[in-house]
């Protein structure tokens, strides 16, 4: 039998074995409930906390086919056994695990990670900046209030609760369409943790930017080293007062590294007029007006043009 035909035989065999494995795996939804000491059952919780019970029922946590509260002990999966809480007549945090400010953030997070730690998006939580800062899951999520992804607020609004400096930048005149709802913080960052700096979803800033700006990836014949190394050398992706989210306006941005030597003479590129206002003919400079340096050097992200003998770059 040829090898390629063997593959077509093996594929369904593997699937068959997997399905047998799956059907033998435990499915708590079909098991008889097990009586545990101190556990009172969700119906008892519902007697006093009907609103919270109803919101819980509307979420994925209440689905028995999902490994989570519904396939275990419902409310008491997260809040712990409720017998003592009931005996004492209830009350906020009385002999029950409450997700409030008094509870240790690590303990709250551990409740969620009991199921979510092996999920691919939360796998690196242990290495995340949020964990170091004692951010807990309930700071952003709520099974009893949440909307999409059980978030307490819409998309990036939940991040602004703590990252108000970023919100201030997003409000600036040049920004990604975050306020407009087309880009969200989670498009670039994984708030549950990554091994990359700033919890970015890619290993380098450039790799991340290329996902949406693929035309910048190159490789190019003529490359601009600071551009190749880090887009943040020139741009502030959260927002800027300067067009194109630049960290500084042109030509000052370019003058941070380039002396405008040679034919440019190191000129300061201002405009002057012997009579204000307006531009006296012959004094205006396209090195300062409009897009300044880019009026001659449009290919500053890289170019496949052929340079001249004097090495003048990104003009072709």
């Amino acid at each position: 039998m040829q090898k390629k035909h063997l593959v077509f035989l093996l594929i369904p065999l593997v699937f068959l074995l997997a399905s047998v494995s799956m059907s033998n795996s435990s499915d708590n939804a079909t098991n008889e409930p097990i009586t545990k000491e101190g556990f009172i059952g969700a119906d008892t919780c519902k007697g006093c906390h009907e609103a919270q019970y109803e919101t819980y029922k509307a979420t994925v946590h209440s689905k028995k086919h999902v490994k989570g509260p519904a396939s275990q002990d419902a409310c008491e999966t997260c809040h712990g056994p409720g017998a003592k809480h009931v005996e004492k007549g209830g009350g906020r945090g009385v002999d029950i695990f409450a997700f409030n400010k008094k509870t240790d953030p690590g303990a709250k997070t551990a409740k969620c990670l009991a199921c979510h730690e092996v999920m691919k998006d939360q796998a690196f939580w242990n290495s995340s900046r949020h964990k170091i800062e004692d951010v807990s899951c309930d700071d952003c999520h709520s099974p009893h209030r949440g909307g999409d992804k059980l978030l307490k607020a819409e998309k990036s609004e939940v991040c602004y609760q703590c990252h108000r400096d970023i919100k201030a930048m997003v409000n600036k005149q040049s920004h990604h369409p975050i306020k407009e709802g087309k880009v969200a913080c989670v498009n670039c960052h994984n708030p549950h943790g990554e091994l990359n700096d700033k919890m970015l979803k890619e290993a380098s800033i450039n790799d991340l930017c290329y996902k949406c700006h693929a035309e910048k990836r190159g490789p190019y014949l003529n490359e601009h080293p600071p551009v190749e190394e880090n887009c943040d050398n020139c741009h502030n992706p959260h927002g800027s007062n300067h067009n194109r989210m630049l960290t500084q306006r042109v030509p000052a941005l370019c003058e941070q590294c380039h002396e405008n030597g040679g034919s440019m003479g190191g000129s300061p590129f201002t405009h002057f007029s012997t009579s204000a206002p307006g531009i006296a003919t012959g004094n205006q400079s396209n090195h300062m007006y409009g897009r300044a340096c880019l009026n001659c050097h449009p290919s500053i992200h890289g170019s496949n043009g052929l340079k001249s003998a004097n090495g003048c770059s990104f003009r072709e």
């Binding site: 005149q173 067009n243 306006r249 405009h271 206002p277 307006g278 531009i279 003919t281 205006q284 400079s285 396209n286 300062m288 007006y289 409009g290 897009r291 300044a292 009026n295």
Partner: peptide, 21 residues
Amino acid sequence: YNDFAFSDPNYQYLLNLTGAY
């Protein structure tokens, strides 16, 4: 918005620019 580099109403024509931004 104000920026002197876009201030003169005729700069585009004098400097062969299209008026971007």
